[in-house]
């Protein structure tokens, strides 16, 4: 009985969605007459921000306040998980891998770090950005903890150090924004706050965007590493 109700509800929803997308599904010629903001960003994006990658320029210069909101969402998730997780020490057993796994992981870890920092620092020149680099840093932590045993690092001190790094990432973002207000322009301003824009296409260009990329990457990476640490320690 419940099954019939659910199937009927899903059929009604699917037909409503089909009527909503009806004139997008029709095959017709492509008429582009409503994308005025995108035209503005494509034409004036490189001149005003100095970054070649338009998606990073939108995320960290034109709409940088939304990126601050997303960093807050990750911070809330990490805090909620740290609040709900258990505080007692759980005995976790070690696993023994073959020597190939140990040698292979020890060889790969420095290259993963280089990949993460390349994605963070070249975020305004090629695809990547702060979020992708931060997640690769968290993957490095997860790999180290999984192969060399759960007891590899001392527990309480390393957790406090990672929380400190995450807080430094969040505070750095906000302080860069307040620097814009002190110089007399908006919050999180790029050129009005006195940052040098440089020549588009070089590494040291685009003003405030590499600094914001670094702070976001550090924050996301250490936040996800804390989440993994708390999940593994559960009973």
């Amino acid at each position: 009985m419940r099954r019939i109700y659910i199937l009927a509800l899903i059929l009604i929803l699917a037909s409503l969605l089909f009527f909503t997308f009806y004139d997008l599904i029709q095959p017709k010629e492509f008429i582009d007459d409503k994308a005025q903001i995108s035209e503005y960003y494509i034409e004036h994006g490189v001149k005003e921000t100095g970054a070649i990658n338009l998606v990073t320029a939108i995320l960290f210069d034109y709409r940088a306040f939304d990126t601050l909101g997303e960093a807050t969402v990750i911070f809330i998730a990490v805090s909620a998980i740290s609040l709900l997780a258990t505080k007692e020490r759980v005995l976790v057993s070690d696993t023994n891998f073959s020597p190939i796994v140990y040698q292979g992981i020890s060889f790969i870890i420095p290259f993963l770090y280089i990949l993460a920092f390349y994605l963070i620092f070249y975020g305004h020149l090629s695809p990547g950005g702060g979020f992708t680099g931060g997640v690769v840093i968290a993957t490095t932590f997860v790999l180290l903890k999984m192969t060399f045993g759960i007891r590899y690092s001392k527990e309480e001190k390393s957790l406090q150090r990672r929380s400190l790094i995450e807080s430094i990432g969040a505070l750095g973002f906000i302080l860069v924004g307040i620097l814009g207000i002190i110089m007399g322009d908006n919050f999180l301003a790029n050129e009005g706050a006195g940052f040098h824009l440089g020549i588009a296409g070089q590494l040291l260009s685009a003003g405030v965007i590499p600094i914001l990329n670094l702070f976001t990457g550090v924050k996301v990476g250490s936040g996800l590493a804390i989440i993994f640490h708390r999940l593994v320690r559960e009973e």
């Binding site: 990658n53 998606v55 990073t56 994605l119 695809p127 990547g128 950005g129 979020f131 992708t132 997640v135 690769v136 968290a138 993957t139 997860v142 996800l224 989440i227 993994f228 999940l231």
Partner: peptide
């Protein structure tokens, strides 16, 4: 869309599956 593709690879293959 190369930015979205890189982010989806790293997050959906590494983090979500591991958790």
């Amino acid at each position: 869309a190369p930015d979205v593709a890189l982010a989806e690879v790293v997050i959906a293959s590494g983090i979500t599956t591991g958790f």
